[in-house]
């Protein structure tokens, strides 16, 4: 049985189509990433799967429970951590945890081993009010509260948004540990670099899934080759590279440009030569393998074509 299976889910807010015809299948015990930019429809999909919202059409099950008919059954077996910190700020760390444990009819003690690893990091502050915690600790507390009743599926909506790079890394380490205890994790993120950390992922754009699979599958399906080009004056270079025959797209990625080119029509030397003709003689170009972000760019169809 799949942990999560949804079929043809659509949802509109008045005339804005937030989610269109999405189907997904998540196996038990995997970390499934939903990767997409802000406004792609990630949170809407989360709200539908966590029974907070009804879809306009489509169906789905979480661990065999229907998301419409058996919403009550789902609420007992999922943990949900919304993107915004939403625990009681005026209750202490311990009180928050106790409160959420009681709502699920359990206690901290019974499930201590389940949350120990994370809770031990915030336990020194257990009498501090949640509102007075730092951002990283708030996130850990929220994760504890979502885990305290031993959910089968954990929904994390943009858990790392607004968190520093080190904490983000820690967080993913925690997720891997949680997965090893058998929990299925459904996580969304706007950060492409986190995509590689998922077991499987789906790329979402404008309310639709534009690609899915393991990170390797997605990368290997990339149809072009990529050159990382560096040069002295980057912006004119970007415009020049886009005009070169045989390049499919060119985007700025940090300190270099990723030029996607069709190997049947051109090659590294040809591109460098063309660039030199345009007055960019001292460019360096390096063949690199595509990342998830390159795939996302290609799949989302944001091409500046020639």
């Amino acid at each position: 049985m799949a942990a999560i299976e949804i079929r043809n889910i659509s949802k509109s807010y008045r005339d804005i189509r937030a989610v269109q015809d999405i189907s997904l299948k998540v196996d038990e015990g995997e970390i499934f990433g939903l990767i997409g930019p802000d406004g792609a429809g990630k949170t809407t999909l989360f709200r539908i799967m966590t029974t907070l919202m009804l879809a306009d059409s489509g169906s789905g099950e979480i661990c065999g429970h229907d998301i419409v008919r058996d919403y009550y059954g789902i609420r007992k077996i999922i943990g949900y951590m919304p993107g915004k910190f939403s625990l009681y700020q005026d209750l202490s760390v311990r009180e928050n945890l106790e409160f959420f444990a009681t709502l699920f009819g359990t206690t901290i003690k019974d499930n201590y081993d389940n949350i120990k690893e994370i809770y031990s990091q915030i336990e020194p502050f257990r009498d501090r009010r949640a509102g007075k915690l730092s951002g990283g600790m708030k996130q850990k507390l929220a994760l504890c509260c979502a885990l305290v009743h031993r959910p089968s599926v954990l929904f994390l909506d943009e858990p790392t948004t607004g968190v520093d790079a080190v904490s983000r890394k820690d967080f993913w380490t925690m997720l891997r540990r949680i997965r090893s205890s058998g929990v299925t994790i459904f996580v969304s993120t706007p950060y492409m670099d986190e995509a590689a950390l998922c077991d499987r992922l789906a790329l979402i754009q404008n309310g639709g899934i534009i690609g899915s699979g393991t990170p390797e599958e997605i990368v290997s399906a990339y149809p072009y080759r990529i050159l990382a080009v560096k040069g002295p004056s980057m912006y004119p270079l970007l415009k020049a590279l886009r005009k070169i025959d045989g390049t499919v797209s060119c985007f700025s990625f940090g300190d270099c440009h990723h030029v996607a080119y069709d190997p049947a029509r051109t090659c590294r030397e040809a591109i460098l030569g063309k660039a030199a003709e345009e007055g960019f003689a001292d460019c360096s170009a390096e063949e690199i393998s595509p990342g998830i972000e390159d795939c996302f760019m290609q799949l989302s169809g944001k091409w500046i074509l020639n």
């Binding site: 966590t50 029974t51 907070l52 009550y72 609420r75 007992k76 999922i78 949900y80 919304p82 915004k84 910190f85 939403s86 625990l87 009681y88 700020q89 959420f100 709502l103 699920f104 009819g105 509260c145």
Partner: peptide
């Protein structure tokens, strides 16, 4: 406003 009501709504309460 705090979003806690949403957190409550995913519990069996």
């Amino acid at each position: 406003e705090a979003g806690t009501i949403e957190q409550m709504n995913v519990t069996p309460v």
